[in-house]
Simulated scan of single mutants.
Amino acid sequence: MTTEAIHADLVALYDGTTPVRSRWAYRADQPFTVTAAFQTDPARWVEWVFSRELLVEGLTSSAGVGDVRFHPLDERGLHMLVVEIESPEGYALLELDRDAVAEFLGRTEELVPHGTEDDHFDVDALIAELTRV
């Protein structure tokens, strides 16, 4: 199994005005998921893990019904991806440059092409992790 990874730093806009730093990561040995961490203050990052397929779908249409939702938005001459994240601690609506997210996803596709995720996923390692007591 390969442990190659893709990383990207993206700036999101919170409520369309306040910049929020975010770190996006994708690992070939975890081919079904993307991790996004959002900086909430200088020393704190909040991390979310969601499916890569959800992010792909969100570039072109509304996607997600749970704690993480995406949808494209073209407004003010900008092409954005709206990210809605919700937890018991709060709610945030963030806007990202859609082209930057698409570029990040393109890099993940180079590492693990769509439809080949099973070839990169080590189910035995997952079972060992889940059964470790």
Rank of each mutant, 00 (worst) to 15 (best):
residue 93 L to S: 15
residue 91 Y to C: 15
residue 88 P to G: 11
residue 67 D to A: 06
residue 71 H to T: 02
residue 63 A to C: 02
residue 61 S to C: 12
residue 79 H to L: 10
residue 62 S to C: 07
residue 83 V to W: 04
residue 70 F to H: 02
residue 86 E to S: 15
residue 70 F to A: 01
residue 62 S to P: 09
residue 81 L to R: 07
residue 89 E to G: 13
residue 74 D to E: 11
residue 74 D to V: 13
residue 97 D to T: 04
residue 75 E to Q: 08
residue 56 V to I: 07
residue 79 H to R: 14
residue 91 Y to A: 15
residue 68 V to M: 01
residue 78 L to N: 10
residue 85 I to M: 07
residue 86 E to N: 13
residue 56 V to P: 00
residue 65 V to P: 01
residue 70 F to M: 05
residue 64 G to N: 05
residue 81 L to G: 03
residue 97 D to N: 09
residue 84 E to F: 05
residue 85 I to Q: 03
residue 95 E to V: 06
residue 73 L to G: 01
residue 86 E to F: 14
residue 89 E to I: 14
residue 80 M to A: 07
residue 71 H to W: 09
residue 75 E to S: 09
residue 75 E to W: 10
residue 84 E to P: 01
residue 82 V to L: 08
residue 76 R to A: 09
residue 59 L to D: 01
residue 69 R to H: 00
residue 95 E to I: 06
residue 84 E to W: 06
residue 67 D to M: 06
residue 90 G to S: 09
residue 89 E to W: 14
residue 87 S to H: 08
residue 76 R to G: 03
residue 60 T to Y: 11
residue 60 T to C: 07
residue 60 T to N: 10
residue 72 P to T: 06
residue 93 L to Y: 14
residue 83 V to K: 00
residue 66 G to W: 05
residue 75 E to G: 02
residue 68 V to H: 00
residue 79 H to F: 10
residue 65 V to H: 12
residue 77 G to I: 12
residue 65 V to E: 13
residue 61 S to M: 13
residue 76 R to F: 09
residue 59 L to Y: 04
residue 80 M to Q: 06
residue 96 L to K: 04
residue 71 H to S: 04
residue 69 R to P: 00
residue 61 S to G: 07
residue 57 E to N: 11
residue 95 E to L: 13
residue 75 E to M: 09
residue 64 G to P: 04
residue 96 L to F: 13
residue 87 S to R: 07
residue 73 L to E: 08
residue 60 T to S: 13
residue 62 S to Y: 10
residue 77 G to A: 05
residue 67 D to C: 03
residue 70 F to I: 03
residue 92 A to W: 12
residue 72 P to D: 03
residue 73 L to D: 02
residue 58 G to S: 10
residue 90 G to Q: 11
residue 57 E to W: 07
residue 94 L to H: 08
residue 59 L to I: 08
residue 80 M to V: 04
residue 59 L to K: 05
residue 87 S to V: 04
residue 72 P to S: 05
residue 62 S to M: 09
residue 85 I to V: 14
residue 90 G to E: 07
residue 60 T to V: 15
residue 70 F to L: 04
residue 80 M to I: 05
residue 93 L to T: 15
residue 73 L to F: 06
residue 62 S to H: 13
residue 74 D to H: 11
residue 94 L to E: 04
residue 96 L to V: 07
residue 83 V to I: 04
residue 97 D to A: 09
residue 69 R to L: 02
residue 76 R to D: 08
residue 69 R to D: 00
residue 89 E to K: 15
residue 68 V to Y: 00
residue 73 L to I: 10
residue 68 V to G: 00
residue 57 E to V: 14
residue 65 V to G: 13
residue 86 E to G: 14
residue 74 D to G: 06
residue 88 P to C: 11
residue 73 L to P: 02
residue 91 Y to N: 15
residue 90 G to N: 11
residue 70 F to T: 01
residue 71 H to R: 12
residue 60 T to M: 08
residue 96 L to T: 05
residue 90 G to T: 12
residue 66 G to K: 03
residue 75 E to H: 09
residue 78 L to C: 11
residue 73 L to V: 11
residue 60 T to H: 11
residue 81 L to S: 05
residue 57 E to G: 06
residue 68 V to A: 00
residue 82 V to Y: 02
residue 75 E to C: 08
residue 65 V to W: 10
residue 64 G to C: 08
residue 65 V to C: 07
residue 70 F to R: 02
residue 75 E to R: 11
residue 82 V to Q: 04
residue 58 G to L: 12
residue 81 L to K: 06
residue 91 Y to M: 15
residue 93 L to C: 15
residue 89 E to R: 15
residue 59 L to H: 03
residue 80 M to E: 05
residue 78 L to V: 12
residue 97 D to P: 03
